[in-house]
């Protein structure tokens, strides 16, 4: 549980959710605790990786919508309109 609490503290720090006082305390701990400092870096990396993964997921959804709009026969008017733009 101790680890999970630390992860929670780091998250609050990264997401800027700490009260000013707690923030000062946390920053003081960072100065003297190199392991905590590395853990903060890793957790920041995780946030950035999750964001990257979220983007991929969103792009997959957009690809699906794109296919849907460009194969569905009931949308042929839409398709024609777009394809005409590129026919010149």
């Amino acid at each position: 549980m101790k680890t999970l609490h630390e992860i929670e503290d780091i998250e609050r720090y990264l997401l800027d959710q700490l009260e000013p006082q707690s923030r000062v305390l946390f920053e003081a701990r960072l100065l003297v605790d190199p392991i905590l400092k590395i853990r903060v870096q890793w957790q920041r990396k995780i946030h950035s990786i999750v964001r990257r993964s979220g983007r991929r997921q969103l792009k997959t959804e957009l690809e699906r919508i794109h296919r849907q709009l460009f194969v569905d026969p009931s949308r042929s008017q839409f398709q024609q309109k777009i394809l005409q733009l590129f026919s010149k």
């Binding site: 990786i49 999750v50 993964s53 997921q57």
Partner: peptide, 30 residues
């Protein structure tokens, strides 16, 4: 940051090894 793709390999690896965790974290953070 949007155009930085230095973490692509690590992202793919974590998506594969921890799919459910990644889905949960995306719901929270993304």
């Amino acid at each position: 940051e949007y155009f930085d793709d230095s973490e692509n390999r690590l992202t793919s690896m974590l998506e594969m090894t921890g799919r459910k965790c990644m889905e949960l974290l995306r719901a929270f953070y993304y």
